[in-house]
Design a protein around this nucleic acid. Structure first.
Lengths: 148, 148
DNA sequence: CTAAATTGGTTGCCATTGCAACTAATTGGG
DNA sequence: CCCAATTAGTTGCAATGGCAACCAATTTAG
C-alpha cells in the first residue's frame, strides 16, 4: 500500500521563507507608509531612482522586478504627487527618462537611513559571521531558484 | 553638510529576501496551479487540513497567517469545489470544523510529494550543513523580526 | 523605401487582498 | 438571569496586482 506523506507546512522551507519575508517587508513598509503614504512598490521605484537617476520605465522594471503595467500606474501616481519627474528620451520618443524630483529626493533622504536602521536591527540577531553567511546563502538560493 | 547615503536596493537584505521568496513561491505554485487550479492561499489551507483535520477557520488562520476574510472566501471556494467539507461544532455553533474531502485528500496526496521534491531540488544548491544552517538562521530571523 | 516585427509604455478587465463594519453565538460580570 | 463584551465567521468596498490587448515609435528584412 502506498506511503502517503503529510506536509509539515510550518517546517516547509518555502513557506517559512515567505512568512519571514512578508513579516519583514510589512514592518519595514510601516516605517514609511504612515509618514509618507508610500507603498512598497512605490518605494522600490523611488529607491532605484535614488541609485540610478534618469532611467527608463523598462530599466526600473528590470531592476525591481515590478511588472510593467503596475509600474506604469505607480509612475503615474508618483508623478501626480510630484515625487518624480519624467521626460521622453531625445533619441527614442517612446522611452521615458525618470528621476526623483526635489521633493522625492528629500523623502528618499529620509527613508534611506530608516531602512538601513531597520536592516541593522533585523540582523542584530546574527553574529557578523552569520550575517555574511546568511547573505551569501540567500544569494546562492536566488541564483539556484532561477535555474529550476 | 549632511551625509546622504543611497540605498543599494539589490543588496538590501529585506529586498533580496522578498525577491527570492516570491520566486520560490511562484515556481512552487506553478506545480499545482496548472494541474489543479489551486492558488497558493488555497493550497496552504489544504496543507494544514492535511496535517490537522477538523480544525476551525480561526485555527487555520493562526497556522497559515491568512487573514480571516481572505480565509472565509477561500473556504467558500474550496467548499464549492468539493475539496473540503465543513460542519459546525456541537458545543459552539459559530465555530466550523473543516476537513479535506475524499477528493481534496487525493489532490493533497498528489501535491505533497511534488512539494517535497521541489524543496529538495531547491536546497540541493546547499550542502547538508548549509541547509541546516540556513534553516536555523531563518527560524531565528523570524523570531527576532517578531520582536521589532 | 516599405511592410512586418519588435519595443516601450498604457489601459481594460478581472481576481486577490485587506481593512472595517457587520451578524450571530457565546461568555462574563453585576 | 440579563445585558455588555467577546468571539467566529461573513460581507462591503476600495486598493492593488497581473494578464492580455492595445497604441505608437523604432528597427529590421526584403
Amino acid at each position: 500500500m502506498a506511503n502517503k506523506p503529510i506536509l509539515k507546512l510550518e517546517r516547509f522551507l518555502p513557506y517559512r521563507l515567505s512568512i519571514v519575508s512578508n513579516k519583514v517587508s510589512s514592518i519595514i513598509a510601516d516605517t514609511y507608509k504612515d509618514k509618507f503614504a508610500i507603498s512598497i512598490t512605490e518605494w522600490r521605484i523611488m529607491a532605484v531612482l535614488g541609485e540610478y537617476p534618469d532611467i527608463s520605465a523598462d530599466e526600473i522594471s528590470a531592476k525591481t522586478q515590478i511588472e510593467k503595467s503596475i509600474l506604469s500606474r505607480s509612475v503615474s501616481k508618483l508623478l501626480k504627487r510630484n515625487l518624480i519627474e519624467r521626460d521622453m528620451a531625445e533619441d527614442d520618443r517612446r522611452r521615458s527618462m525618470i528621476r526623483l524630483s526635489a521633493t522625492g529626493k528629500s523623502v528618499y533622504d529620509e527613508i534611506v537611513p530608516l531602512s538601513y536602521q531597520y536592516e541593522d536591527a533585523l540582523l542584530e540577531c546574527f553574529s557578523e559571521e552569520e550575517q555574511a553567511q546568511f547573505s551569501h546563502l540567500i544569494d546562492r538560493l536566488y541564483e539556484h531558484a532561477g535555474n529550476l
